[in-house]
Amino acid sequence: MEIRLEKAYLIFRKDWKEISRNWQVILPIIAVPLVLTIVLPVIMIYLPGAVYNQGVYTGDVTEFIKNIPSEVRSQISMMDSRQAMIYIVLTYLFAPFFLIIPLMASSVIASDSFAGEKERKTIEALLATPISDDELLLGKILVSFIPSMAVTILSFTVYTIVVDVLTYDIFYGKYILPNTTWLLLIFGAAPAVAFATIGLIVAISARVKGFREAQEISGVLIIPIVMLIAGQATGAFFLGINTLVAMIVILIILDIMIFYIGKMLFEREKILVRLD
């Protein structure tokens, strides 16, 4: 049967109205990007400067630079130590942190939208409406995906402005963001991460009883991102253009697999029977 987009949009509007009135959902979606886009860059820009002026970290910075991949080393070859430190932290080490935003936002929204509806015992009347499984699923995916990506893109925009404004003098009028890596990260990797999270929650939604349980299970997705952050910090892994493209391709394949499994498991009867 053909999917009626207006029905999916109806689910989207209803869920968004509900979610936007739920501080349990909205608070982490606002707080995490706020810390990542404003608080951390400000600390990073001003903290190394203060420390450097006292001549404390010079040796450590040189040592740290030695461990980073040559691709980044070439980008900072003409910079002084302070510029190099700020550049590495803000454009290189911070990059994988931004994958946490779509992961967190989509996991919180999808958990509320799928499992939360079960928990609040509102799903039976919804399942009784003449809205098909596909329309229902599409509406719920949209309400998890669109706000997550909106928050990610908005965070990236704010972060770029904050970083460029604060480092304008340090880099003598040169803007260090956006660059190709970040664009790939935000418009390629971030949607793929958001989609994988939503797919996983759809897949487990018939088996969990509520919001918390869904969030806890979807929390396993943070592990690869933490590994990515640790890999970048230790120099074991570099999130360059080639790596990012490969990562996006793998994520898209995973997305498709998770989505089909989720779709197979999204059955009205199973969702309903698990309520009792």
């Binding site: 209803k14 009135r21 609040r120 015992k121 509102t122 039976e124 009347a125 919804l126 009784a128």
Partner: peptide
């Protein structure tokens, strides 16, 4: 039309 065992209403709406 169905009145389910629980009222199934969206309490934030």
């Amino acid at each position: 039309g169905i009145l389910t065992e629980n009222p199934c209403l969206y309490e934030r709406l």
